[in-house]
């Protein structure tokens, strides 16, 4: 379980190293009127503070949950209703909930004019982010839900093991921990929680106050777009790493069953039957699928941290904008 528990912190550490190496410039260079420049710079500073707070909270949450899971794996019995594996499997989703909740806060552009204006159009997340941004978390959620249902159907009736024995008389076969419905249902609940928090965060980002000064509008849209990208990528990465972890756990158990059936209770080799071979093959496929999903999750985490820590905009000279 140790390698499994270290998976998510590893993802975070790798992403942060990747980010530190590849610091990029501002997302956009915008022309902002000199009267509004101070407001724009103040917003950039507030965003930096928000980002530091959000990342610190996210890392702290991931660390606390992982440490609690590791301690739990040492101190609790595996067959208890809630074992440490529940917590370890839920760690990415709960961490993402924390991150999304923090990144939903957008600082307002400070303005001191005597008059304020507002458009009479309802802003939605689609006003700022392209549709493609929202496809990834939906697809990842659908994949995770499918895996939970599929693995729940394949698992033993107890919902937490997978075992197979080709010939009970010869004592062959094996079994192990498997992400059945005992682990799957809490994951589904976590997924619904994350979806709810993500929807609220997206609505909040879209409907946050917009500045009255027209030259700040593009900067405002950029801040919202980056916010939307951060929360959707964070949610996607959490769902993908969970799906990957579930696949790796299932694949590992399936492969071990196939290996365990190569000798009987007296140490004599027994031929694997077709079912055992199929379990072994599916186990290998699940392992590789899990690795691919974790790799995709790392890409999303790096993207999310990149967007979160990037300066949204800088004030460009007029000539540069025109060019």
């Amino acid at each position: 379980m140790l390698h499994f528990a270290l998976l998510f912190p590893l993802v975070v550490v790798v992403a942060m190293i990747a980010l530190a190496v590849a610091r990029r410039g501002p997302f956009r260079a915008l022309h902002i009127s000199s009267a509004a420049a101070a407001s724009a710079e103040a917003t950039n500073r507030r965003l930096r503070l928000r980002n530091v707070g959000a990342i610190a909270a996210t890392v702290a949450c991931a660390t606390l949950l992982t440490v609690a899971g590791l301690i739990g794996s040492i101190t609790t019995e595996r067959q208890e209703p809630l074992d440490a594996l529940h917590l370890l499997l839920l760690t990415p989703i709960l961490t993402a909930v924390t991150a999304v909740a923090f990144f939903a806060f957008l600082p307002a552009f400070p303005e001191e004019s005597a008059s304020r204006t507002a458009d009479l159009t309802r802003r939605t997340p689609l006003t700022f982010g392209p549709r493609s941004v929202f496809v990834a978390p939906v697809a990842a959620a659908a994949l995770l839900a499918f895996l939970i249902v599929l693995l729940g159907a394949v698992a033993d009736p107890d919902g937490r093991m997978l075992s197979y024995s080709p010939d009970v008389a010869k004592m062959g076969g094996g079994g192990g921990t498997f992400p059945g419905l005992v682990y799957g249902i809490p994951l589904l609940v976590g997924m619904v929680l994350l979806a709810g928090v993500l929807i609220v965060a997206l609505k909040r980002i879209a409907s946050a106050p917009r500045p009255t000064d027209a030259s700040l509008r593009e900067a405002d849209s950029t801040v919202r777009l980056l916010g939307i990208r951060v929360v959707t990528k964070t949610a996607t990465s959490a769902l993908l790493v969970t799906a990957g972890s579930v696949c790796i756990l299932a694949g590992n158990t399936a492969e071990s069953i196939n290996r365990g059936t190569s000798v009987d209770g007296r140490g004599n080799p027994i031929p694997a039957d077709a079912t055992m071979q199929a379990i072994g093959t599916l186990g290998t496929i699940a392992l590789w699928l899990g690795v691919a999903l974790v790799a995709a999750a790392i890409a999303f985490v790096v993207g999310a941290i990149g967007d979160a820590t990037r300066k949204p905009f800088e004030i460009a000279p007029v000539a540069e904008v025109l060019a």
């Binding site: 304020r116 204006t117 507002a118 802003r123 409907s207 106050p209």
Partner: peptide
């Protein structure tokens, strides 16, 4: 005025109370 002169068509969805209040501080 916007509604009576027809600048806002019937069925037009207005911003939420929270959004409008936020924009107008």
């Amino acid at each position: 005025d916007e509604i009576r002169v027809g600048n806002l068509a019937p069925g037009h969805k207005l911003p939420s109370v929270r959004q409008l209040a936020g924009d107008l501080r």
